[in-house]
Design a binder for these strands. Structure first.
Lengths: 117, 117
DNA sequence: CTATAATGTGACGAATTCGTCATGCCCCTG
DNA sequence: CAGGGGCATGACGAATTCGTCACATTATAG
């Protein structure tokens, strides 16, 4: 319904977005990640996909989640540290977080049922 | 500070943990993910690492984040709880999402003020 | 102990990424 | 026009994973 395997074609966009968000050009990211600039270009144009190790290195270098790079989550919590709301949520403790959880879960469930009918 | 590159040796453990958490044996996970059982075994014993595509497929099949599988986040925040909540949040639209935003923001602000005094 | 299930291990050719490098193409600035 | 930054593209051999399969080893029963 919402998580069919997304076309792996999302990755190039996400990578470029994250890189530009960090204000880096391909060469700078390449150096940070210990790769050749051409490797970054290949990733962003979709002619190659990163290996297991390089995927993690890229995520580390850009300080984003791998789930964001893979298109498994939307922008929300994607650019990890940068999102205000997400930070707020993460700052919640105990009963406060539970309250937020319950509201969101309830809303999602209600919306889903509405969609069904 | 908190995100040094972890040894890629964490992945085999995480994969096994997640698989067992879902109550699957290697063959069942293999079928779900469209792979051979031996592939799962190779991953869990560390003799192979999954490719870009297979990593995502594994995360999908087990309903965990790739960041969890890669050891980029700590233990159980990555399984069911927080991440499912984020997906719920992402599924919200319009006024529902706004409502969730406002609650979270309000709670965070309130907690912050409380901490100050 | 004996089956049976579950997992581990290692081969095979095919496919892909690896790192490295050269080259071409824009776009801008001088 | 000349130079340079940024990016795209494609080659090369080396390394790795791919899917598939056979077989060994290790639990878990009955």
């Amino acid at each position: 319904m919402h998580l069919s395997t997304p076309p792996s074609a999302i990755f190039p966009d996400r990578l470029r977005r994250a890189r530009e968000y960090r204000g880096l050009n391909q060469a700078e990211l390449a150096q940070k990640a210990g790769m050749q600039p051409s490797a970054i270009s290949h990733f962003e144009t979709g002619t190659r996909k990163p290996s297991f190790d390089n995927l993690r290195i890229l995520a580390d270098s850009l300080d984003v989640t791998t789930d964001y790079l893979l298109g498994r989550v939307e922008e929300f919590k994607a650019l990890a540290g940068a999102d205000r709301l997400h930070r707020h949520y993460e700052s919640l403790e105990g009963s406060d977080r539970k309250m937020a959880d319950e509201l969101i879960t309830m809303l999602a469930k209600r919306a889903e049922e509405k969609g069904k009918s």
